[in-house]
Design a protein around this nucleic acid. Structure first.
Length: 852
RNA sequence: GGGCGAUUAGCGCAGCGGUAGCGCACUUCCCUGACACGGAAGGGGUCGCAGGUUCGAUUCCUGCAUCGCCCACCA
């Protein structure tokens, strides 16, 4: 990190100017406190029409934030502040996503514990660690599910406090009286309630089917959570016996050979036509399997004939369904070969071979079976290394397996064309910013092949409000679940009994058992618009805040958070959850690599905020448009800091000359009126850009004008201002007030500071109205041309290598624009220190000359 | 293989049918009564490549290349 040398300088500054800050240092603390005391960002709940509501992304609470968060949340805050100044009552809540796997993992490491579901709650349980620093021989301690959840809740609360501090320091104008968290009771209640409604309407259902399974976390996962990665493997050529000869099968998964149910070739493949109706025997195990034909077999892949297992990949599932093949699972949920010989392996040699595989992981079983095959002469050659793409659970480290199991689903249009069309139409109606992001939504909806699998075999999540009857035989009846009553929500079925049952009937014949699973974390997050706006809790609020106006989020979670929210809102209300969705880009490190913990290139946001100030960090974020990947750039923060300081200095200068409120009617000089007209144009452009969520353009317009205001206008009118010319003083003051307003959404701290110098008894600049009250009386051309020629004259002096204050005999201004610039003749004369100035509009080329 | 985005000065980015812009960095000058944590000025680009449309293309179209992301491909 760079050396910090600002502290000592700022102290000096403070000594000289006790009441007016000279630099931006320390403004964060002062104003966040004041904003909080005065409840500046409180949602007042006036009316539906005046409400602007934002579906803030609840950040995952699992450790530390990085500058990527600061980046996108700043974009949203700019819009929130702009809308507030436009007169909207901004509903800007904050949520915390503390539900789900990231929290579980963090708690396991932080406290050194793991869940043992056989344990009962122990109120005196003390975790072995605090802070996650384990010694060499440390062994994690088991605890009950309930103890574990308590630890999760405790730790996420601590993390949330830290997150909040950072958001406050960054100046997010969130209404902190409106927060929610996804494991909180209200979120559990709403998630369970909406699930029951989905179930009632037939949108939620359970079925036993092959599912995507992560063997490390031992849970089912959904299509949206998959990620494909390069994974090394080996091609093994297995020799099946068929039709008196041998059939070679190329596979990367020989360990699944015991679960082989068929060999399948393409019906058009001449090599295998002779095998029609014939059977084959598997190597090692001698199991008889049919030789079948299916179009999906690619003739040029491998040997053109595949073995179909339970289940090697999605194609196996397809064949299993379409060809009505038997189910022969051999993998456990932990990803190991099962511990007893399956009944379909009948011959002794086969049984013996299988026993050698029992309990092995997929990885070890693969090696073992290869050596067995080699021993029996049923493998051709050696395994050939290959690299292929394999599907992983995005948080997992081993490839996904496909295992048959009973799970809960929510319909998402994958098997329902009407629903799919409805959801595509939702995409049409939602405004994406930038617009091209819509294609990602469309692609996802069009490509959906399975309904949304929402059950997870985890602990720290929202339980399903469901129990099952236990038949007299002791068998669990999954077909008719017992639903919780809406009034009882939230419920934890593992600790409370369903209506009509007593707790002692749990697990007994004639009694009940709880659904042990919890919901996918997205099942809760997909309800954030309902949660935040008080659905089924505060109907008065809900009526005003829902549907919401804005959903800001990352582009990587369009297929999850955005789609899931659209889906669930559509199922419940048949309408969109929001009007606009803004998508921020990635933050890259200075070498244009994506920032990630594993690469160790993450920047913790506290450091730049402390070094450059929150306004400067916000400036860096604001310079990047939505959807554009942006490099972390401290240079940009330095510029932001310089701009913020410049705003303080310009304000001080103007306010020393004109401390009281301005009066537009006293602005009479044509140059001053023209300056205000130019500002009028800038305000219109900035507002227009912000309406289109183009904060970067709004900032650029404002900033460019501000520099010209300082360099040109202030220099032009300085002389008059010193002589207390009312027109100049009032124009300066009006422009200052307007500029502070224009900068306020971007640089909330420095603008608030200067605003209070200007309006000592006034309210916050952030509650002032967006500045557009000025009249365009003169057109901007006068000021623009005067500024242009002033700049030319400065250039002549610079070329003459003289100080700008050097007196000159005569200045000449000529060419196009000279006529317009004439409105500033006296001001130009004073600014250039010229005794005489001549205007000549006749030449075709604009220029300026100086006689020294 | 399909889709999306990017390619403009050393770096970071705007722009978009009509003599190339901003900021940083670089060079020169200036402690000028807001600001030296500052200011003024200057040098620097055949706008990825190849075609096409047009009076005119950095801008529109087509193809290609490179980079990034998403989806499909797992026998």
């Amino acid at each position: 990190m760079r050396p910090v040398k600002l502290a000592s300088m700022s102290e000096e500054g403070k000594k000289e100017q006790p009441e007016r800050a000279k630099t931006v240092d320390g403004l964060e603390k002062k104003w966040t406190q004041w904003w909080s005391e005065k409840k500046i960002y409180e949602y007042r709940g006036k009316s539906r029409g005046s409400t602007y509501s934002i579906d803030t992304p609840p950040p995952t609470v699992s450790g530390h934030l990085h500058v990527g968060h600061v980046f996108s949340y700043t974009h949203t805050d700019i819009i929130a502040r702009y809308k507030r100044m436009k007169g909207f009552d901004v509903f800007y809540p904050m949520g915390w996503d503390d539900n789900g796997l990231p929290t579980e993992r963090r708690v396991q490491n932080y406290y050194g514990v793991y869940v043992d579901t056989s344990l009962k709650f122990d109120p005196s349980f003390v975790p072995p660690l605090e802070g996650g620093k384990a010694g060499k021989d440390f062994k994690p301690a088991p605890c009950s599910r309930e103890n574990f959840i308590k630890l999760c809740e405790g730790l996420s609360q601590k993390d949330e406090e830290q997150f909040k501090n950072l958001w406050v320091e960054l100046g997010l104008s969130v209404d902190w009286s409106r927060t929610y968290h996804t494991i909180g009771p209200e979120c559990r209640r709403i998630s369970q309630l909406e699930f029951l409604r989905n179930l009632e309407r037939g949108e939620a259902y359970q079925k036993a089917a092959p599912v995507l399974w992560d063997t490390t976390f031992q849970t089912a996962v959904s299509q949206a959570e998959l990620e494909s990665r390069e994974y090394p493997g080996f091609y093994h050529t297995l020799l099946f016996r068929a039709d008196g000869g041998k059939v070679a099968i190329k596979t990367t998964r020989p360990e699944l050979l015991p679960s082989c149910v068929a060999l399948i070739a393409n019906p058009k493949d001449p090599r295998y036509g002779r095998l029609k109706g014939k059977k084959a025997r598997t190597p090692l195990f001698g199991v008889e399997v049919p030789i079948l034909f299916h179009e999906a077999v690619e003739m040029d892949k491998g040997s053109g004939i595949a073995m179909c297992c339970t289940f090697g990949d999605a194609t196996d599932v397809e064949w299993w369904k379409e060809l009505s093949l038997p189910l022969r699972p051999i993998l456990t949920k932990a990803g190991r070969i099962c511990a007893s010989v399956p009944e379909w392996i009948e011959n002794e040699a086969g049984k013996e071979a299988f026993e050698k595989l029992e309990g092995l992981t997929v990885f070890s079983a693969r090696k073992e079976i290869a050596s067995l095959l080699k021993g029996s002469g049923e493998m051709e050659g050696e395994p050939v290394p290959t690299s292929r793409m394999a599907n992983f659970y995005e948080k997992g480290s081993k490839p996904i397996e496909i295992l048959p199991s009973r799970q809960w689903y929510i319909a998402n249009g994958s098997h329902d064309e009407k629903l799919r069309r409805d959801l595509l139409r939702c995409g049409e109606e939602l405004s994406f910013h930038p617009a091209f992001m819509k294609r990602r939504y469309d692609n996802w909806v069009e490509g959906l092949s399975e309904d949304w699998l929402i059950s997870r075999q985890r602990f720290f999540g929202i339980p399903f409000p469901i129990w099952y009857r236990v038949k007299e035989s002791g068998e669990v009846d999954y077909l008719s679940p017992i639903r919780a009553l809406p009034a009882d929500l939230p419920v934890d079925p593992s600790s409370s009994a369903p209506q009509g049952f007593e707790e002692k009937m749990r697990g007994k014949p004639g009694g009940f058992v709880a659904e042990p699973d919890v919901m996918d974390t997205w099942a809760a997050s997909s309800l954030t618009p309902l949660l935040a706006s008080g659905w089924k809790k505060d109907e008065n609020l809900f009526e005003k805040a829902f549907p919401m106006d804005l959903r800001p989020q990352g582009q990587d979670i369009i297929r999850t958070w955005l789609f899931d929210t659209v889906l669930r809102t559509w199922l419940e209300f048949k309408e969109l959850p929001w009007k606009d969705a803004t998508l921020s880009g990635w933050i890259l490190d200075p070498d244009h690599k994506k920032m990630s913990k594993s690469k160790g290139n993450v920047v913790v946001p506290k450091e730049p905020i402390e070094e450059y100030g929150a306004d400067a960090v916000r400036y860096w974020a604001a310079c990047a448009r939505l959807g554009v990947d942006t490099a972390y750039d401290e240079g940009e923060m330095k510029i932001g800091r310089r701009l913020a300081n410049k705003i303080l200095n310009a304000s001080k200068f103007i306010l020393d000359l004109k401390p009281d409120e301005a009066d537009f009617s006293l602005v009479t000089s044509p140059l001053d009126l023209s300056l205000l007209s130019a500002l009028f144009e800038v305000e219109k452009k900035a507002a227009c850009a912000l309406e289109a969520f183009d904060h970067a353009l709004a900032l650029q317009e404002t900033e460019a004008f501000f520099w010209s205001f300082c360099d040109d206008y202030i220099e032009l009118v300085k002389d008059r201002a010193y002589r207390k010319d009312e027109s100049a003083l009032n124009a300066l003051r009006l422009a200052l007030d307007a500029l502070l307003g224009l900068f306020a959404p971007f640089l909330p701290f420095v603008t608030e500071e200067a605003w209070h110098w200007a309006h000592p008894k006034g309210l916050s600049v952030h509650l002032s109205s967006w500045p557009l009250p000025l009249e365009d009386k003169a057109g901007a051309e006068g000021f623009e041309n005067a500024a242009f020629f002033l700049s030319l004259l400065r250039k002549r002096k610079s070329e003459g290598k003289v100080s700008l204050k050097t007196e000159v005999k005569k200045a000449k201004i000529f060419g196009p624009g000279a006529k317009e610039a004439r409105i500033a003749d006296q001001d130009l004369k004073a600014a250039v220190h010229a005794k005489e100035i001549e205007f000549d509009p006749s030449p075709l080329q604009a220029g300026a000359e100086i006689e020294f």
